[in-house]
């Protein structure tokens, strides 16, 4: 079966004058559809950088990146954007809801960029509000919600277009434990429903919801408990 994501010798480097700093080094990964992957590692390991590249928000890297067999490294910005819109949902640590829009309108935003007709848009938003039990919050603004409720809306916004892949950057980082637990159970349910999830976290407990842990350190993949046959970082630091 073709992997959802294939990375081959992916590297990200930033240059500061004559110096070069590698944020990611020779990353080789295969991620299958339906996996629940956790990326872990100390601060500065390159976790969020890798997530941004997987989410196609960052296009400044070298190497090969295949998404559903499509060579992302050969796509122009427009086509990359289309691929991202069609397949990927984001959940952020700081929720990143739009402050001056209501919950309903926030859920509508990704639909508006996929040219979903108004009637269908309203119907999809109503279904999602119902599915996440937030119908009563639809007219509230983000600052009228608790952190957990905001993240719930963030997850609802990420899944409203039924993406194949959800990328979550420290999704429970700003939540208290009960709210975090609720969000992780929600991810687990989405994963059980077939959605591939890749999360970045420092929490062992959150990682336990997933089926695979990729360890990063100083930009290198230093650990991957993937099933046999899946290549891990080809070269690792001494």
């Amino acid at each position: 079966m073709e992997p959802l994501i294939q990375l081959r010798n992916l590297e990200k480097v930033i240059e500061a004058g004559p110096n070069k700093f590698w944020l990611l080094r020779r990353i080789n990964l295969d991620i299958q559809a339906g996996e629940f992957v956790t990326i872990m590692g100390p601060s500065g390991a390159g976790k969020s950088t890798l997530l941004s590249i997987l989410g196609m928000l960052d296009g400044a890297w070298t190497g090969d990146f295949y998404f559903l067999g499509e060579a992302v490294h050969k796509l122009n910005v427009k086509k990359r954007n289309e691929l991202h819109k069609a397949n990927i949902g984001f959940v952020f640590q700081s929720y990143h809801l739009i402050d001056n829009l209501t919950v309903f309108e926030n859920l509508e935003v990704p639909l508006s960029y996929k040219n979903v007709p108004h009637k269908e848009r309203v119907s999809l938003v109503c279904d999602t509000l119902d599915r996440f039990h937030i119908v009563g919050k639809k007219d509230l603004f983000p600052n009228q919600l608790s952190g957990g409720q905001q993240q719930l809306v963030g997850v609802a916004r990420a899944v409203i277009l039924s993406p194949k892949l959800i990328l979550a950057d420290e999704p429970t980082g700003n939540l208290h434990s009960a709210q975090g637990e609720e969000i992780m159970q929600l991810f687990k349910r989405l994963n059980d429903g077939g959605t591939t999830i890749i999360q970045v976290t420092h929490s062992e407990r959150n990682a336990s919801y997933g089926s695979r842990i990729i360890q990063l350190k100083d930009g290198w993949v230093v650990g991957d408990n993937a099933t046999a046959g899946t290549p891990v970082g080809a070269a690792q630091p001494a």
Binding site: G55, L57, K78, N81, H84, K85, F90, H96, L97, I98, D99, N100, V109, P110, Y113, K114, R157
Partner: peptide
């Protein structure tokens, strides 16, 4: 920030 969020959500 809003523009960044919109772009991350697919705005061109």
């Amino acid at each position: 920030h809003e523009i960044g969020v919109r772009m991350a959500l697919g705005a061109r």
